[in-house]
């Protein structure tokens, strides 16, 4: 009898744990769906009034008049993201090759915590750094070098701050990808008389090319959604940017700057939710494609 009771209790406990596990797992499945539905539901008011093409390709932003064109914000976002990737991409690629192929163990011992700490620094810290270091640098040195007088608060400032932020992120993925390339391949190439660099160029990079592309894709989507650090240095002026020294106004900054005040105007509220939806969908698509490429190439 006593023995039975113990078994019963153990099974009951097992069952309670199991149901809690199912509930928790349910959250993971419900979360993306509810994010999408919630944002969709909120932005429906705006989508009813204006066509999608109209929203995306018009640059007329007059919330009070009910005109919402996102082109300015989308262009700003694309500028900032692309420039940050242009800076971070080559640096990450070269460092990842260095760390996985050439570096001595003491270099790895230094770099591991450096990458860790850089990845763990809060975005607002990057923003402060941008204001303290990048903005003066642009205003006093780089701007005058190109013969322009600039305030520093610009697309370029946002991109520089962003690029440092996404470096540890891309670097970690690249290192992981390079480590999965079988050693035998490099050894075969080396034994055929190829130099180290030739092996890297024709074996390592070729073999992990899809992985590299998707690492950049993941970095790009990370940069696309980053809010606070960019918001602090990018200037936030609503106009179509034509140069890197001009201020921009990316999508996340639009949401962060205006939310809360605009509840009184339902259309504005809806418009901001639409930009959140836009971010969500774009980032999700980029992430999905990149992750799929990584999965497929690692098989």
């Amino acid at each position: 009898m006593n023995g039975l009771k113990v078994i019963y209790n153990r099974n009951l406990r097992n069952r309670i744990h199991l149901s809690w596990m199912w509930i928790s797992l349910g959250v993971v499945f419900v979360l993306p769906l509810s994010l999408f539905i919630g944002l969709m539901w909120k932005s429906a008011i705006l989508l009813d009034q204006q066509s999608l093409i109209d929203l995306l390709f018009s640059s007329e932003w007059k919330p009070m008049a009910g005109k919402f064109g996102y082109l300015t914000f989308i262009v700003s976002s694309v500028w900032v993201t692309m420039i940050s990737l242009l800076i971070a991409g080559p640096v990450c690629l070269l460092t990842a090759i260095h760390l996985t192929q050439y570096a001595k163990s003491w270099v790895l011992k230094i770099m591991a915590p450096v990458i860790d700490i850089l990845a763990g620094l809060p975005s607002v810290i990057f923003g402060v750094w941008g204001i303290l270091f990048v903005i003066p640098l642009l205003a006093n040195h780089i701007g005058p070098f190109f013969g322009k007088s600039v305030s520093g608060y610009s697309i370029l400032a946002g991109a520089i701050v962003l690029s440092i932020m996404i470096i540890p992120f891309i670097l970690n993925i690249l290192i992981e990808i390079f480590q999965t390339v079988p050693k035998e391949l490099s050894e075969a190439s080396l034994s055929l008389g190829a130099t180290r660099w030739q092996t890297i160029k024709f074996v390592l990079l070729k073999k992990s090319f899809p992985g590299i592309v998707s690492a950049f894709g993941l970095g790009m989507s990370r940069a696309f959604g980053e809010t606070i650090a960019v918001l602090m240095v990018v200037g936030n002026v609503v106009h179509l940017p034509t140069g890197v020294f001009q201020p921009g106004y990316p999508l996340p900054s639009l949401i962060a700057n205006n939310y809360g005040e605009m509840l009184s105007i339902p259309m504005y509220d809806s418009a901001l939710m639409f930009s959140a939806l836009l971010l969500f969908v774009v980032v999700l698509i980029f992430n999905a494609i990149s992750r799929l490429i990584i999965l497929r190439s690692s098989r």
Binding site: L25, G38, A276, L279, F286, R291
Partner: peptide, 23 residues
């Protein structure tokens, strides 16, 4: 499940913020 978690990891925090505010 892992794929889904990786996707969710990539969602910018501002989207969670806006969603949380709506809720």
């Amino acid at each position: 499940i892992r794929f889904l978690l990786d996707l969710l990891w990539g969602v910018p925090s501002i989207v969670y913020g806006a969603f949380g505010f709506t809720i």
